[in-house]
């Protein structure tokens, strides 16, 4: 069996061994994304598998969201379609995180990593459902 004939599940497992899913020391995810980009170029059979892993995580900082072009791109990015489920928020002010939350671009985020002071009520805004003015009659 050659490396290229391995089943997709095994290739994915190999990626997950080689690339840390929750990198604690890879602050901006550079190593994570660089490795997966390289894997995607190994062979066409690896491309979609590596890209699917790439799409799962996104790193954002004040530098990225303060750049108008980047922010505009974020507003248009189809995070729902690409199955982005992990957001790493690095060093940006919490009010910018709030803007992103309110953009409702991250409806499928299941994993949130933050390193800025933040209120639990802001975290709770990670959208999906906001029930306004629910009335309970007792």
């Amino acid at each position: 069996m050659s490396l290229l004939s391995l089943p997709p599940e095994l290739i994915l497992s190999t990626f997950q061994i080689a690339v840390d899913t929750f990198p604690q020391y890879d602050y901006r995810g550079n190593e994570h994304t660089s490795n997966l980009r390289s894997f995607s170029l190994v062979h066409p059979k690896w491309t979609s598998l590596a890209q699917s892993q790439l799409a799962q995580s996104i790193w954002l900082s004040s530098r990225t969201v303060q750049n108008e072009k980047t922010f505009a791109a974020l507003e248009k990015a189809p995070f729902d379609e690409t199955e982005t489920t992990r957001l790493f928020w690095r060093g940006g002010p919490a009010n910018q995180l709030e803007e992103l939350v309110m953009m409702e671009r991250f409806r499928k985020i299941k994993y949130l990593s933050i390193d800025v002071d933040v209120s639990i009520s802001l975290i709770a805004n990670f959208p999906r459902e906001l029930y306004d003015s629910i009335s309970f009659v007792v």
Binding site: K110, I123, Y131, I134
Partner: peptide, 14 residues
């Protein structure tokens, strides 16, 4: 309002 989130993991660092 009641705020509901579907987060499964919250990681706070530093």
């Amino acid at each position: 309002p009641i705020l509901i989130t579907d987060l499964e993991t919250l990681h706070v660092s530093d």
